[in-house]
């Protein structure tokens, strides 16, 4: 059901882990739907180049693979160029995803955006096209509490 590339990134995730004192951190998704992604960015203050990126993901094989691929795609890019890492770009880089898993690639894009947003907020920077991330990480739990 998954491409070889998806399986490769699931079995050997790239850049899995945390970055201490990260320049930006973003968490998206919710436990209710079964996917949560967290992205850590290490950004060079002067060049605005993403020197390092790490992820942590709770989710299915596609969720792990898309976050792994997203980290690979943004490393070495400036924070402005990182906006090119869309869900489509992640999917193409993975040789496609089953239709029911497309939301995983959207989540990967959103998690990068959320981490960039966190960085921009701290440094008062604006990236064209970057919007405030949806705060739905805890929606699931809130709904259950009702």
């Amino acid at each position: 059901m998954y491409s070889e590339k998806v399986m490769d990134h699931f079995q050997h995730p790239r850049n899995m882990g945390e970055i201490e004192n990260a320049s930006g951190v973003g968490t998206v998704g919710n436990a209710k739907c079964g996917d949560i992604m967290r992205i850590y960015l290490d950004i060079d203050e002067d060049t605005k180049i993403i020197k390092d990126c790490k992820f942590k993901t709770f989710g299915c094989g596609a969720a792990v693979a898309t976050s792994s691929m997203a980290t690979e795609l943004v490393i070495g890019k400036t924070i402005y160029e990182a906006m090119e890492v869309t869900n489509k770009a992640v999917m193409e880089a993975l040789d496609g995803l089953p239709p029911v898993k497309i939301h995983c690639s959207l989540l990967a894009e959103e998690s990068i955006h959320a981490a960039l947003w966190d960085y921009c907020q701290k440094h008062n920077i604006e990236i064209p096209g970057l919007k405030e991330p949806k705060k739905d990480v805890h929606d699931g739990e809130e709904e259950q509490a009702e």
Partner: peptide, 27 residues
């Protein structure tokens, strides 16, 4: 999450199943 667990079990030769969303195609 269950599907990740199933894939990893399968890589080790064990066939199991899960009631997770990702194995049913719904959320």
């Amino acid at each position: 999450e269950g599907e990740s667990m199933l894939i990893m079990l399968d890589m080790n030769g064990v066939c199991g199943s899960s009631g997770s969303a990702c194995t049913s195609g719904s959320l």
